[in-house]
Simulated scan of single mutants.
Amino acid sequence: MRLDSYVVTETTTTASGAEEALPAAVLWDMDGTLVDTEPYWQESQVRLVAEHGGTWSREDGDSLIGSGLWHSARVLQEHGVKLSEQEIIDRMTDDVLVSVREHLPWRPGARELLRSVRDAGIPTALVTMSIRRMADFIASAIDFDAFDVVIAGDEVEHAKPHPDPYLRAASALGVDVASCIAIEDSPTGLASALAAGATAIGVEHHAPLPTDGAFVHRRSLEGVALDDLRDILRTGRALAALPEGDA
């Protein structure tokens, strides 16, 4: 798809007379944000550790939400899994793909907002620490052309919370990351998006989010519309401009 076909010019006028633009792009996390696959990953982790004689708690699984799979694999090895990092990643990915082929649980409001963004001509990227074959499966399961760019965990030098994934997404779209909105569900993902310079929406789900971060906190994406994205972009920029510790 040609990225230069997307030129977002729609604006709204504030009380001061200034024009307020839509984001240059919307950058989406996948697991836990777009689709509720985190329980599938945790079920795979429990099985893997049990097969090697260990135990895996809900807290263990929650601690890995948003992390790169190579980091997760090393933690599983520390819990006694006697496989290589790549073998662990492939096994978990295979397990989760079996589950999502049976049932793909969308997060409330996520697909609807994504469709609104696409209908408005706003570029989008999927920015996930899942590997490419998982990301491509989820993207292909959407019944419209959802993403211009997919940034997968096996294609970045540094995983979240490093800013690299979001910087790569903005660069691939040809937009300034500071004019983008990133949507995340984990502290790790939010740290990545904010370090990159994006305005971030944190949609709390499995992992508790900080109460004092420089991001816009939402309980759900249900009912979020394009006008809300304008407001969120403005709010996010204001939070980013605050002295550290005042957000």
Results as ranks from 00 to 15, higher is better:
Arg2Met: 02
Leu3Lys: 11
Ser5Arg: 06
Thr11Phe: 07
Ala15Phe: 12
Ser16Phe: 13
Ser16Met: 08
Ala18Phe: 15
Ala18Glu: 13
Glu20Phe: 15
Glu20Ala: 12
Glu20Pro: 00
Ala21Phe: 12
Ala21Asp: 11
Leu22Phe: 12
Ala24Phe: 02
Ala25Glu: 05
Asp29Ser: 03
Asp36Tyr: 11
Thr37Gly: 04
Trp41His: 08
Gln42Glu: 15
Gln42Tyr: 06
Glu43Leu: 04
Ser44Gly: 10
Arg47Ile: 13
Val49Pro: 00
Val49Ile: 15
Gly53Asn: 11
Thr55Ile: 08
Trp56Glu: 09
Trp56Leu: 11
Arg58Val: 04
Asp62Gln: 07
Ile65Ala: 06
His71Asp: 03
Arg74Val: 05
Val75Pro: 00
Leu76Cys: 15
Gln77Leu: 10
Gln77Met: 08
Glu78Ile: 12
Lys82His: 15
Ile88Met: 06
Ile88Phe: 06
Ile89Ser: 01
Thr93Leu: 09
Asp95Arg: 02
Val98Ala: 13
Glu102Ser: 08
Leu104Met: 15
Arg107Pro: 00
Glu112Leu: 03
Arg115Trp: 10
Thr124His: 01
Ala125Leu: 03
Leu126Glu: 10
Val127Phe: 02
Ser130Arg: 01
Ile131Met: 01
Arg132Asn: 06
Phe137Gly: 02
Ala139His: 05
Asp143Thr: 07
Phe144Trp: 06
Asp145Glu: 12
Ala146Tyr: 03
Asp148Lys: 00
Ala152Tyr: 14
Val156Cys: 04
Ala159Ile: 09
Lys160Trp: 12
Asp164Leu: 06
Ala172Leu: 11
Val177Lys: 02
Ala178Tyr: 15
Ser179His: 03
Ser179Gln: 14
Ser179Thr: 10
Cys180Phe: 13
Ala182His: 04
Pro187Asn: 11
Leu194His: 05
Ala198His: 09
Thr199Asp: 04
Val203Gln: 01
His205Trp: 15
His206Lys: 03
Pro210Cys: 11
Asp212Met: 14
Ala214Val: 09
Val216Pro: 00
Arg218Ser: 11
Arg219Gly: 14
Ser220Phe: 15
Ser220Ala: 09
Asp227His: 07
Asp228Cys: 04
Asp228Pro: 01
Asp231Gly: 06
Leu233Ile: 09
Arg234Asp: 12
Ala240Lys: 03
Glu244Ala: 14
Gly245Pro: 01
